[in-house]
Write a protein that binds this DNA or RNA. Structure first.
Ligand code: FES
Ligand code: FES
Lengths: 141, 141
DNA sequence: TAATATCCTACTAAACTAATAGGAATTATA
DNA sequence: TATAATTCCTATTAGTTTAGTAGGATATTA
C-alpha cells in the first residue's frame, strides 16, 4: 500500500497549477523544472489527468495546461482515480460476477474500509491544499 | 490500491481459525482445502503471521496453528501489517531523512489519509468478523 | 519560419507479486 | 519403532506492474 509516483507527481502538478496557474497556461516544462519531475514522465501523467477531465490544455508556444474545474470542486479522490482508476480494494467490489458472495463475510468488511478511504479522499479539496501551502510559505518568510 | 492475495488469503485463514479453532490446532491443509487456497502458498503466509506473533504453532501429526491473542484483540490492522509491513502511503512518512519537508504540503495530507485508514483498520476486530459470519450462515439456514 | 508547446505511439529495465518445489525436522499414534 | 501428518526452511520462477525513456507528429505564437 504505497502511493505510486504517478499519483504523487500528478498531485504535485495539480497543486502547482492551482497555486500558480491563475488566468494562464502552465507548461509541463515549467512544472517539471520547479517540481523536479522528469519531463517525459510527467507528460504521461498529464495526459491521464486531461483525458479524465481534470485538466484542459492549449497546444503550441505559450500553451500549457489549466484546471478544468474549480479548486473548490477538485478532490484528492478525483486526482487519484483519474490517474489509477477507481479504488476497489478487492475485485469482488467492482466485478459483480462473483460466486463466493454467499459464504463471504469479508466482502462487507473490505467494502467498509473502501468507503472510509473514499470518503476521506473526497473530503480533501485542492483548495484546502493550496491554502495550507500558502500558510506554510508565509510561516517561513 | 488493491489488496494483495497474501492479505486476502491470510485474513481468510485467520477468520477460519477464529471460527473453527477453539481449543484445537488447525492445520494448513485443512484451511487450504476449505478455503480453496494453494497449500504451499498458504504456508508462506502462515509463516509471516506466526513470526509477527499473531499465530502460534505445534509441529507434527495432529499439530497446526492457533491464535496467539484473543479474537477481541486482533484487528485487521494487525493482520495486514503482519503480512505486508506497516502502511505508509508515502516514503516520507516512514523515513525521517527527507530534505523536501520544508516546501512540501502534501506530507501532512498523506499523513492524514494514512491515519484515517489506520484507525479504520484498527477498529475492525476479528471478533466482529466472526460474529458477522455466524449471523450470515444462520440467515441461510 | 523558428521556437515552444502538446499529442501520440512505442519500448524497456527493475521491482514486486503470486506462486511452486523439494526436502528437513518434529510429533502423535498404531 | 515405523509411519503418517504436520510445520519449518531455502530456493526458484513466471507473470504483472511500475517507473521511466525515446522519437517524432501536430499545433500555436511571434
Ligand atoms: S470472494 Fe467475492 S464476495 Fe468474497
Ligand atoms: S517529499 Fe518529503 S515531506 Fe514531502
Amino acid at each position: 500500500m504505497k502511493l505510486s509516483t504517478k499519483i504523487r507527481y500528478g498531485t504535485r502538478a495539480l497543486v502547482y497549477i492551482a497555486a500558480f496557474g491563475k488566468n494562464r497556461y502552465v507548461s509541463i516544462s515549467e512544472i517539471s523544472e520547479k517540481e523536479n519531475i522528469s519531463l517525459k514522465y510527467l507528460e504521461n501523467i498529464m495526459t491521464l489527468l486531461k483525458s479524465s477531465g481534470l485538466l484542459r490544455s492549449m497546444q503550441g508556444a505559450g500553451g500549457g495546461y489549466y484546471l478544468a474545474k474549480s479548486i473548490d470542486e477538485l478532490t484528492l479522490a478525483d486526482i487519484m482515480y483519474s490517474i489509477s482508476g477507481p479504488i476497489f480494494l478487492v475485485r469482488c467490489l467492482s466485478e459483480y460476477e462473483c460466486n463466493r458472495e454467499m459464504e463471504c463475510v469479508l466482502k462487507d468488511v473490505w467494502n467498509d474500509v473502501n468507503n472510509v478511504l473514499d470518503k476521506k479522499l473526497r473530503s480533501i479539496k485542492l483548495k484546502n491544499i493550496v491554502k495550507k501551502r500558502k500558510r506554510k510559505i508565509k510561516s517561513f518568510a
